[in-house]
Amino acid sequence: SKIRITWGDKTWEWDGDDEEVWKRILEWARNLGDEELWRHVKEWVDK
C-alpha cells in the first residue's frame, strides 16, 4: 500500500506502510524544516 501526504499544494507518496516507512517519513518531515508538518506526522506515527 501507499502512504500519501498532502500539505498545502504539494503531495508526496511512499510505498508501504510499515514502521520503517513511517520513520523515514518522520525524518523527511524534520529535514523539510516545517515544524507544523513534522508535528502532524508525529501524531500519525504515535497512533
Rank of each mutant, 00 (worst) to 15 (best):
D46G: 06
A29I: 03
E19T: 14
K23D: 13
I25A: 03
D15A: 11
D15E: 13
T11G: 03
E13L: 04
E43V: 05
I25F: 03
K42P: 00
K10D: 12
K10P: 01
D15K: 04
S1L: 15
K47L: 12
V41A: 02
R4A: 09
R30T: 09
R30Q: 08
R24L: 15
D15F: 07
G16E: 10
D46R: 04
W22C: 03
W38L: 14
E43T: 07
L32N: 11
G33N: 11
H40I: 12
W7F: 07
W14F: 10
D34T: 03
E19F: 13
H40Y: 15
E27L: 11
E13Q: 05
G8A: 07
D46V: 06
W28I: 01
E27M: 07
D17A: 14
W44D: 01
D15W: 07
I3C: 03
N31D: 13
W38G: 04
I5L: 14
V21F: 04
E27D: 12
D34H: 04
K47S: 10
E27Y: 06
G16C: 11
S1T: 15
G33W: 07
W12S: 03
K2R: 11
N31P: 02
D17K: 11
E36K: 04
E36M: 06
L26V: 08
S1V: 14
D17N: 14
E13N: 02
L32D: 06
L26Q: 06
K2V: 10
S1Y: 12
D9P: 04
W44V: 09
G8T: 02
D34R: 01
E27S: 09
D9W: 01
E35C: 08
D34Y: 07
E36V: 05
K47I: 14
W28M: 02
V41E: 00
W38T: 08
K42A: 12
R24S: 10
E20H: 14
L37W: 07
T6A: 06
T11Y: 13
K23N: 10
T6P: 02
K2A: 09
D46A: 11
L37E: 01
W14Y: 03
V41W: 02
E36D: 15
E36A: 07
E20Y: 12
W12Q: 04
L37G: 01
K10G: 05
V41T: 01
S1W: 07
K23T: 12
W12V: 06
W22F: 11
E35S: 07
W22N: 03
E13S: 05
D46I: 07
W14S: 02
E13C: 04
E13G: 02
E27P: 00
V41H: 00
D17G: 15
E27I: 12
E19I: 15
S1I: 15
D9Q: 04
V41D: 00
A29G: 03
W44P: 00
G33R: 04
K23Y: 13
I5H: 01
D9N: 06
D46E: 14
V21W: 04
V21L: 08
K42C: 11
K23M: 11
K23V: 10
K2G: 06
V41M: 04
E19Q: 13
W38A: 08
V45A: 15
K47E: 10
R39H: 08
R4Q: 12
D18Q: 11
W22H: 06
K2I: 07
R30L: 14
E19W: 09
H40E: 11
T11Q: 09
G8C: 07
R39V: 08
T11I: 13
K47A: 14
D34W: 10
W12K: 04
V21R: 02
V41R: 00
R24I: 13
L26A: 05
R4D: 02
D17M: 09
S1P: 15
W38R: 05
T6G: 03
I3N: 02
E43L: 06
G33Q: 09
D18A: 12
R30M: 11
V41Y: 02
D34E: 05
W7K: 03
D9S: 04
E27F: 07
E19K: 15
L37R: 01
